[in-house]
Amino acid sequence: MADQAEVYEEQNVHEVYQQIAGHFSATRYKPWPIVEKFLQELTPGSIGLDVGCGNGKNLRVNRDVFIVASDRSENLAKIAVQHQPHAAVVADILHLPHRDAFFDFAVCIAVVHHMSTPARRIEAIAEILRTIKRGSDGQPGGRILVYAWALEQKNSRRGWDKGDSQDLMVPWVRRAKPGSGEEDQTFHRYYHLYESGELERDIEQAGGVVVESGYEKDNWWAIATPKHDS
């Protein structure tokens, strides 16, 4: 089952991002307000991760911390690496190349909704939490910020809402340059749309404690910390 899911994501997520990396990046330039706030409030010198960093748009927010960003797509990591003073590597969210309980923070923005089974979504969050510093008496632990696309977005261009299917293929259209003689190309990416409360449940099952959560522009988000000694 896990193998099947892996192959499925390879074809319906990873390969698509490799193909659309350049165009995708050109349309993604502004960090979302909650992400911006989370990153701006970090203590200077904090060390953290941006898991599934895409083109690295969130790496522009704070130059007083050091972020090791990672993406499954080499083409996107190559774009992300240009943001100083940070770093970018190619890695899989289920097998992060980072030590246990070390990092001060992590962001994982619009990534876990690409995992194609409930078990893999929870495993992904657990893997991020594994790398985060545990709290101890009087000392707070590190924090993660996770974002996932919401099922409830009836006012969006897509118009999905409660009761619709949560697992679907979403088209990405790459328009041909006018007069180039080329044709538009459509790529499909797999998404799992999160319903209200689901992200918090996944985080708790992954061994996290939700500190704060909410909804921002068609997405559910949550800030969490690892359970003590989990």
Partner: peptide, 19 residues
């Protein structure tokens, strides 16, 4: 890859993390 990055990465193999 910056030299500092080497200080914040390790082996991706789960079993190696404890070594």
């Amino acid at each position: 890859m910056k030299v500092i990055t080497a200080n914040f990465v390790t082996c991706a193999v789960k079993e190696c993390k404890t070594s």
